[in-house]
């Protein structure tokens, strides 16, 4: 049952990667990477349960923290850099 969930999480990570490669705009890629990150959190937690080691949950929690911070950092950088270029366009 856990392994079925792990397979579903892996498949959805694969689809998120496909969207990351195909994504026309930059923000599609950030969306796919963000989704990939949260799925990794789930994958780590489930692998912790599969292998019977409860300390994987700390890794999953840290990964969720880092994933959130990195998405906000990427957006903060790219939001303002685009604004300068879009101002010159209009």
């Amino acid at each position: 049952m856990i392994s079925a969930t792990i397979v579903a999480v892996l498949v959805s990570m694969l689809l998120a990667l496909v969207r990351a490669f195909m994504g026309p705009s930059f923000y599609d890629r950030v969306l796919a990477v963000n989704m990939f990150g949260t799925k990794t959190v789930l994958l780590i937690a489930l692998l912790g349960f599969l292998s019977g080691r409860p300390d994987f949950l700390d890794i999953a929690l840290i990964y969720a923290l880092i994933n959130f911070i990195s998405v906000i950092a990427i957006l903060r950088y790219f939001e303002y850099s685009n604004r300068k270029s879009s101002i010159q366009e209009t």
């Binding site: 049952m1 969930t5 579903a8 999480v9 498949v11 959805s12 689809l15 989704m35």
Partner: peptide, 15 residues
């Protein structure tokens, strides 16, 4: 677990 897995899969297909 299975409903969570189903939701995640539909989300990925939706994306």
């Amino acid at each position: 677990l299975i409903s969570g897995a189903f939701l995640i899969f539909t989300g990925a297909v939706g994306v």
